[in-house]
Amino acid sequence: MLLLDTDAHPAHERVDAFQSIAAGESGTCTIEHEGPQVRIRLERWNFGPMTMFATQGTGIEVRRSTRQVRRDPVNTVSVTTQSRGSGAFAWNDHRQYIRPGTLVMANKTAGYDYGWSGMGYAVAFMVDADHLGVPEHLVRAAIPLLSTSPVAPLLLHHVRALHRDADRLGTEPGADALAAATLELTRALIGSVTAAPPRHAVEDTTLLTRILAYARTHLIEPDLTPHRIAHAHHISVRTLYRICENGGLSLEQWIIRRRLEGARQDLAAPQHAHRTIESIARSWGFTNPAHFSRRFRQFFGVTPGQWRRGHPIR
């Protein structure tokens, strides 16, 4: 969704327009623009608890001081990826040069400084720290070390792919699941640089995140089987089960639960009012109506029909 295009404003109103929106979205901050010709385009999409932003335009510096943090406290974590332009990022005592392909993280309970010179383009996402579910001291410890993480390129690729189709993906029933996948990758990123487990444990954690992201992407396809998932990740089915077990989950149950949650959302969604329960079940990979109804009741305590009647579609 487009929040701002300064080309639609007179030149003398552009700075104030961007300042107002930026402060409303991410907290009180100071913004300095490079040169007199200010051109900024700002877009936003919501994925469940996560908000994604795309900012492009002329040189800019966004600064949030410790005084502003105390005056306007927010407990959010942001991850920013640079697609175009070069500049700098600072958080507490950490200083970092940014260029296309750089990924940086900020905890908004501390001051930060971020910006680029010339034309630039950045894609970022922001989430409340409570939703991320990682202790603040680990987030803070990870920030200076992210460039050393083997997970950073994976998260960077994921964010860029999500942004490319954000207009469609942000409005679909799977938006919450995509947010969950993004946050899982972020947790893996933080964990990969703040702990010192055996190397195979780090590799397994990273691979599990990729496995679940792959499963979410292909969730509605009936042929999403352990064999297919293992083949896609160049591992054996036995290794796949071991990685999932070490991660504390049953892959089959995880897939079934996510499919049931998707079907439950569709059953109450106005845009699916014309569809039968069986049609919705098939679209989420359930080819046997009786099996779908049984598992639905098992997980949610009501049949699909009871759920739909209890959530009348307007």
Score class of each variant (00 low, 15 high):
Leu2Gln: 12
Leu3Ile: 01
Leu3Gln: 03
Asp5Ser: 10
Asp7Val: 13
Ala8Phe: 13
Ala8Ser: 13
Pro10Val: 03
His12Trp: 06
Asp16Ser: 11
Ala17Cys: 02
Ala17Phe: 00
Ile31Gly: 03
His33Arg: 04
Glu34Lys: 04
Gly35His: 09
Pro36Val: 15
Gln37Asp: 15
Gln37Pro: 01
Gln37Trp: 11
Arg39Glu: 13
Glu43Leu: 12
Glu43Gly: 08
Pro49Trp: 00
Met50Gln: 09
Gly57His: 07
Thr58Gln: 01
Val62Tyr: 00
Val62Gly: 07
Thr66Glu: 15
Arg67Tyr: 12
Thr80Cys: 07
Gly87Ser: 04
Ala88Lys: 15
Phe89Cys: 12
Ala90Asn: 10
Asn92Gln: 15
Asp93Ile: 11
Ala106Met: 05
Ala110Cys: 11
Tyr112Gly: 07
Tyr114Trp: 10
Tyr121Cys: 07
Ala122His: 09
Ala124Met: 11
Ala124Val: 09
Met126Gly: 09
Ala129Leu: 07
Ala129His: 10
Ala129Ser: 15
Asp130Lys: 15
Leu146Asp: 02
Thr148Glu: 14
Thr148His: 14
Ser149Lys: 05
Ser149Val: 00
Ala152Asn: 02
Ala152Lys: 07
Leu155Lys: 00
His158Gln: 05
Val159Ala: 04
Arg168Gly: 03
Thr171Asp: 06
Pro173Met: 03
Leu178Asp: 01
Ala180Thr: 13
Leu185Glu: 08
Leu185Met: 09
Ile190Gln: 04
Gly191Ala: 09
Val193Lys: 02
Ala201Arg: 10
Val202Phe: 06
Asp204Arg: 14
Asp204Lys: 09
Thr206Gln: 12
Leu208Asn: 00
Leu208Glu: 03
Thr209Gln: 05
Leu212Ala: 10
Ala215Leu: 03
Ala215Asp: 07
Arg216Glu: 11
His218Asp: 10
Leu219Asp: 05
Ile220Cys: 13
Glu221His: 13
Glu221Pro: 01
His231Gln: 14
His234Pro: 00
Arg238Lys: 14
Tyr241Ala: 15
Ile243His: 05
Ser250Ala: 06
Trp254Cys: 02
Arg257Ala: 10
Arg257Val: 06
Gly262Arg: 08
Ala263Asn: 04
His274Val: 11
Thr276Gly: 12
Glu278Thr: 14
Ser279Asn: 10
Ala281Arg: 00
Gly285Trp: 01
Phe286Trp: 14
Phe299Pro: 00
Gly301Glu: 00
Thr303Trp: 01
Pro304Gln: 03
Arg314His: 13
